[in-house]
């Protein structure tokens, strides 16, 4: 009679995981270790990441730009004349956090840092100095924003895809600000396009679009035939082979199929 060993082998040691609680205690959640290091050494210069740039002065963020976020000029566009200092500061901070949100998005390539002066005084800061934002605050806010979007509607597809309204009948009423977004959903525009047209921050538009998606009013447009991935290449058999035996076999197959 054989005996079966029932002792199970000891489980493999657990893989090390990043201690998120400790990271939060430090005031950052590992959004960008490089940025955290630059803040610690009070660096001045420009951090270039895949989706945008952060300008640092003494380790604090004084300006941010991203192709995914409308700039200060766009946010102020409908404003006639010189904006009041409070309004300018409000817009600048809003634009900074907006661009930083996209700049700090997970990226596939490492960031680069160019030491030197941050944005020049003849640059965007000439419009009005912004209160420098500590890196830890910016990283916390960026994580909070990701979480906010996820809680509204967990599917991020609507963040970048052209948007469409699948069913115009029976759409629930929505507030004026969101209606302005909805009115521009046409199967072509993306959330960023709509943000630019409305002179709103991109993140704010993502929030509205996710709320609309959660309500079932807006969805990402499925790819059109023109944009659909090209069909897989035809098997060689169909196109190039001229072997007479194969030709005969194909004719035989066609004849059998025709029966």
């Amino acid at each position: 009679m054989t005996t079966v060993r029932t002792t199970t082998p000891a489980p493999p040691p657990r893989l090390p995981v990043r201690d998120k609680a400790a990271a939060l205690d430090r005031g950052w959640g590992g959004v960008s270790p490089m940025l955290t290091r630059l803040a610690a050494e009070r660096a001045t210069g420009i951090l270039v990441r895949e989706r945008g740039t952060l300008h640092l002065a003494d380790g604090q963020v004084v300006h941010a730009e991203s192709p995914s976020a409308p700039g200060l000029d766009t946010l102020l566009t409908p404003h006639g004349g010189d904006p009041a200092p409070g309004a300018l500061e409000l817009c600048h901070l809003t634009a900074l956090y907006d661009a930083a949100y996209f700049t700090l998005a997970p990226s596939s390539t490492p960031g680069r840092f160019r030491y030197g002066s941050a944005v020049g005084l003849d640059g965007p800061l000439a419009l009005g100095a912004v209160r420098p934002v500590p890196v830890a605050a910016l990283e916390r806010e960026t994580l909070r924003r990701r979480d906010l979007l996820h809680r509204i509607w967990p599917d991020p597809t609507t963040d970048e895809a052209p948007l469409t309204r699948p069913d115009r009948v029976g759409a629930p009423p929505c507030p004026a600000r969101r209606r302005a977004v909805l009115a521009r959903v046409d199967g072509v525009r993306t959330a960023l396009d709509i943000a630019r047209e409305l002179g709103r921050p991109a993140f704010h538009t993502l929030v509205d679009v996710r709320r609309l998606a959660a309500a079932g009013v807006v969805s990402p447009r499925p790819p059109t035939p023109a944009e659909a991935p090209p069909p897989p290449p035809q098997p060689l058999l169909e196109t190039e082979v001229v072997d007479p035996h194969i030709t005969l076999l194909k004719r035989l197959r066609d004849a059998l199929e025709a029966l």
């Binding site: 409000l90 809003t94 956090y97 806010e141 909070r144 906010l148 929030v207």
Partner: peptide
């Protein structure tokens, strides 16, 4: 505090914070 109601961000805050946590 001056707060943005779409994002929930405090663009500025002074004094105490209700609940002890400004954010």
């Amino acid at each position: 505090a001056l707060v943005d109601w779409t994002s929930g961000l405090a663009l500025g805050a002074v004094g105490e914070s209700p609940g002890g946590d400004q954010e």
